[in-house]
């Protein structure tokens, strides 16, 4: 029983990080139809920004915020200056995001060096919690709560605010939204900024748990892609459900079929792709 609890809890907490990363990817794809390969690298650069902030101020929560904001600014600049010119050129947009991956990876080497670094969470989050015979890392619980709060906030933003409804309209149909008086360029910047913010923030959040090291970007990115492919691009509900699935399946897969880690994750994805290319909650194409 405890065994199962532990595995499911671990799965959910991993799903929480995957959700924060995937949600940004999903929004960006949903609205702008950009496959943003740089997203994992945003995650990593965000972690480095958070690290620098933490070193300067000692405030972990400020680090999360700064990590997010720095990447949001970077994302908006990239969107405004580069991606916007390539609207409608799907392939060009993907290729250019790959270009930014390489440039940013190199920038990391230059600015922060090749050293692997770790980041400490505040003391009260670094302990181990206990309920009966079930013990769990506090930090993982924190991640789950944080992701849940973010999901609720995003849901509120999407369904209850005017800006949010423009975003939703843009997900459904950009041209139509433009016709209805939505300021599409602003929505694009907003969405890209928000998506990048989530990526940067999740990088900082993951740092105390995964450490920060070159290569982390491409180690975590596949999970986010699986989540948005399974969940459906642009769907908040889809991202929540699929991220949890990814977390739990990955956990149980590694537990029971360690030789087929990754495959246990990719196979369901392939099956869903074959049956429903738009994902569980995506709009049919």
């Amino acid at each position: 029983m405890t065994f199962w609890l532990t595995q499911i809890f671990n799965g959910i907490s991993y799903g929480a990080i995957v959700f924060l990363l995937a949600m940004g990817l999903s929004l960006i794809f949903g609205v702008m139809k950009v496959i943003n390969v740089t997203h994992g690298t945003y995650f990593l650069v965000g972690a480095y920004f958070g690290l620098t902030t933490l070193k300067q101020t000692g405030n972990f929560f400020l680090a999360i915020l700064i990590g997010g904001i720095a990447i949001a600014i970077m994302g908006i600049v990239i969107e405004r200056v580069f991606l916007r010119r390539l609207q409608g050129n799907d392939l060009g947009q993907v290729l250019i995001t790959m270009g930014f991956v390489l440039v940013l990876q190199d920038a990391i080497l230059v600015i922060w060096g090749p050293d692997p670094v770790s980041m400490d969470a505040p003391k009260f989050l670094a302990s181990t919690g206990r309920i009966g015979g079930f013990s769990f890392p506090m930090y993982r619980l924190f991640l789950i709560v944080f992701a849940a709060v973010t999901a609720v906030a995003l849901w509120f933003f999407e369904s209850r605010t005017k800006v949010g409804s423009s975003v939703r309209a843009a997900v459904d149909d950009v041209e139509m939204a433009g016709g209805m008086g939505v300021n599409v360029p602003v929505v694009f910047s907003l969405v890209f900024g928000l998506g990048s913010f989530l990526a940067g923030m999740s990088g900082v959040l993951a740092a105390p748990w995964l450490g920060i090291q070159a290569g982390l970007d491409f180690e975590i990115l596949p999970f986010a892609f699986v989540a948005i492919i399974v969940g459906g691009m642009g769907s908040l509900k889809g991202a929540v459900v699929a991220s949890l699935l990814v977390g739990i399946i990955d956990n149980l897969g590694k537990t029971f079929f360690p030789e087929f880690a990754y495959f246990t994750l990719f196979l369901p994805m392939a099956v869903i792709l074959a049956i429903r290319p738009s994902g569980l909650f995506g709009r049919a194409m």
Partner: peptide
């Protein structure tokens, strides 16, 4: 390139006296 070691850690047998680890690259951090 394992990111989350949770599943492996959850499987560790409780009746062992010691772990013998071999860690490479980022594993030593995580």
């Amino acid at each position: 390139n394992t990111v989350d070691y949770g599943p492996y850690i959850g499987k560790l047998r409780k009746d062992a006296d010691a772990l013998f680890l071999t860690l490479a690259a980022a594993q030593g951090l995580r």
